[in-house]
Design a protein around this nucleic acid. Structure first.
Lengths: 220, 220
DNA sequence: GACTCGAACCAATTGAAACCAATCCCAACT
DNA sequence: AGTTGGGATTGGTTTCAATTGGTTCGAGTC
């Protein structure tokens, strides 16, 4: 898991990047940040103390917390890390062929594991649980390709999915209806795998990921 | 019977691999690990002491136990005995779509760099020089896709190409004639990139890599 | 007898809520 | 129009219970 200070910092970075936060602008109250980051106020305050000590932010009782010029300057100088768009681009490149490969070489045990992830995900009504089984399903499919190097690369990709921006984006765009849709798409992929249909698995996976990308990043 | 320490270690490895554990992340409390591993707390504590002594983990009273950077680094550097077959499989999955992507978004500067690598490779008669420019060419094409995460994964892939087995295999199967053939295939890829032809670039790259795989691994 | 296991206990830290004081907001009043 | 008063908001503080790694101790096992 990621520390509260890191999530707060990335919140500021995101805000200044998309222009919703500028120098001198007021950022959410401590109590609002508590809800937004789902962290205890003590942790939020500790993070804010660090930011204040670094001169990124000034705080006044009764007024609020304000961004300094130094903060936006620091953000401008910072390198941009991988964006959700980049991640989805990579997933669209990598995962469909991997699904095709898995359809060829998966063992029955692989398929059992995959099916289990699919069913658990389908039985998950809540965001957190669904996300967990979604991640495990995609990883199980990659595992079924039986290529260690591929798994290494998959994990590099998933490491980027742990970035705070990704989590907030997922949470913002998720809904029960979309989760049901994803589950249906997952089912199509898994059925193609069970049918040993590489082309079908590849197409189904591409369709699923294109849908995810559309939902996350907005239709283009 | 496997020791508690081993199961704990594999728990950490699994967690860092699938991204649920990163540097600095908090791992379950001792009491939670007791349930999860169904081992007595004394055994869990003994295992944690070893991990702490190895610098994999830090512990604080009242706070919890936290993963160190060294731990995830150790996992990342884990023995990746990847076979040339696996590498070529991954290259065939990854590089053709990347070439298509590059054809869409490459800048003129990207194309200039790519062209330079192509020409230097074509002018190299010796194995070593050709291999260097070959590697740079493929990397320059990946760079032209302008996706940082993609480059990360590309580097993971290339790290496996540093293994001794790979080098000797290349040396054994290389010949002036094959190098000329590769150069012609490279030229086809780069021309498609210059024509902004994604499909052509993808096809040319796939044909090239299939040829490389055949030469390295023997025709199947 | 040496060791392990389980439980209780200890001390450091966190978490949640209540409370405080500075500030803001706005309506009522002169 | 300007003033003023009170309530709402907001960063700061206190308080107390819960959590968590560390320790101790007696029962059980070999």
């Amino acid at each position: 898991m990621i520390s509260v200070e890191q999530s707060l910092r990335s919140l500021l970075v995101e805000g200044t990047r998309n222009g919703s936060l500028g120098p001198g602008s007021k950022l959410p109250t401590e109590r609002a940040l508590v809800e937004r980051l789902s962290a205890p106020r003590s942790a939020v305050r500790r993070a804010l103390e660090v930011l204040e000590r670094d001169g990124m932010v000034v705080r006044h009782v009764g007024r609020g917390t304000y961004l300094t010029d130094a903060a936006v300057e620091a953000v401008r100088a910072a390198p941009a890390d991988t964006s959700p768009a980049e991640i989805m681009q990579v997933r669209l490149v990598l995962e469909p062929p991997v699904a095709a490969l898995a359809a060829r070489v998966a063992t029955q045990a692989d398929l059992d594991r995959i099916t289990q992830c699919l069913e658990r995900g389908g039985a998950s009504d809540e965001f957190e649980a669904f996300e967990m089984w979604d991640g495990r399903l995609h990883r199980a499919i990659a595992e079924a390709a039986h290529n260690g190097l591929l798994m290494n690369m998959f994990d590099v990709m998933n490491a980027s999915r742990q970035l705070p921006v990704w989590g907030s984006l997922k949470r913002r765009t998720s809904s029960p209806e979309r989760r049901r849709c994803y589950h249906a798409e997952h089912t199509a992929v898994v059925e193609a795998l069970r049918d040993r249909d590489p082309e079908g698995a590849q197409v189904a996976m591409r369709r699923h990921l294109e849908n995810v990308a559309d939902n996350l990043l907005g239709r283009h």
